[in-house]
Design a protein around this nucleic acid. Sequence first.
DNA 1: AATATATGAATGAACG
DNA 2: CGTTCATTCATATATT
Lengths: 181, 181
Amino acid sequence: DGVGDVKEGDGYIRRRLGQVMTDEQMDILRFQISAYATICQHLVEMHKAIMAQQNALPGYRLGNPILYDSMMAIAGHKMTGRQRWTPTQMQLQILENIFDQGNGTPSKQKIKEITAELSEHGQISETNVYNWFQNRRARTKRKQQLGPPNNGESEVETDLDSPKEKKAKMGQNPLQESQAD
Amino acid sequence: DGVGDVKEGDGYIRRRLGQVMTDEQMDILRFQISAYATICQHLVEMHKAIMAQQNALPGYRLGNPILYDSMMAIAGHKMTGRQRWTPTQMQLQILENIFDQGNGTPSKQKIKEITAELSEHGQISETNVYNWFQNRRARTKRKQQLGPPNNGESEVETDLDSPKEKKAKMGQNPLQESQAD
DNA sequence: AATATATGAATGAACG
DNA sequence: CGTTCATTCATATATT
């Protein structure tokens, strides 16, 4: 990975990618993002600890106020004591990976192993893992039933008598490119 | 909003380091954070490009909403992607009507039929119908809970972290909670 | 424009 | 396991 290759500079990462990304590239990107997310979380904790120490220095702040704010947002949510488990990017990545290996529903033993591994990346219990697989499977199935099938009628709406519509703004249509730069 | 604005409820921050950090260490930390800030900005740009490409997948986005939101905040740019389905007056009328007939959550087959009918009045998918009923029921129920209660005195205890006792009833699930932080 | 509210969508957990 | 519930996130719309 390139986590340690913190360098800097414009164009460190290929900007201006006008091309379509491959699945593989997307996978790499997701991994990188999750990695940075984890790193940022750690940095946030460190920073907070520092602030607790130097609670003076009122003017001191990290250089980028926007980043700072975002990080605080991340930290804030993290500590707001969430009732339900929320997988970290790292955990999700691992779970998805295992799921894709097609080994259906993990055995009890397997779940213990997975849980042990995921514990390295955040709080988690065996029940969480169990539920995740159950849900993942159920929803994949549901999508096959409700998603793809283009049922009979086309959406050719000849509703000549609905002039009351203020906007013809429908959701669902592919968002258009709004890429700047 | 400032530094002290960070909510610290359960003494999360109270964990203090054994010792104060040196200026040098702080400097390193600052450098690291700014470096990651730059990287994240670039990743956000890449992500935006991906989203533009993946305009087919409904509702798809990175798993961690918090991280996602933060990144979008960093990006600062309003590239708000994907729009959501908005029922037309006609569709809403039909949906409400069906809902009032008391037939709770429609079966998958029923959903297909409803979707077919609503397609006559505007773009819609089976998932939209499914979600609509789910939300309709859930919110109707919630309203009933907030309405009746005629508690006028004391503050309405929005017990966030209270008697949310989880039922250890796992049914067929042999797993059990074994971790708690 | 900024804030508040309504509501579509996503998902962890629970139920039968 | 399939289905349903509950909570939350994100965005559309309304209000000031």
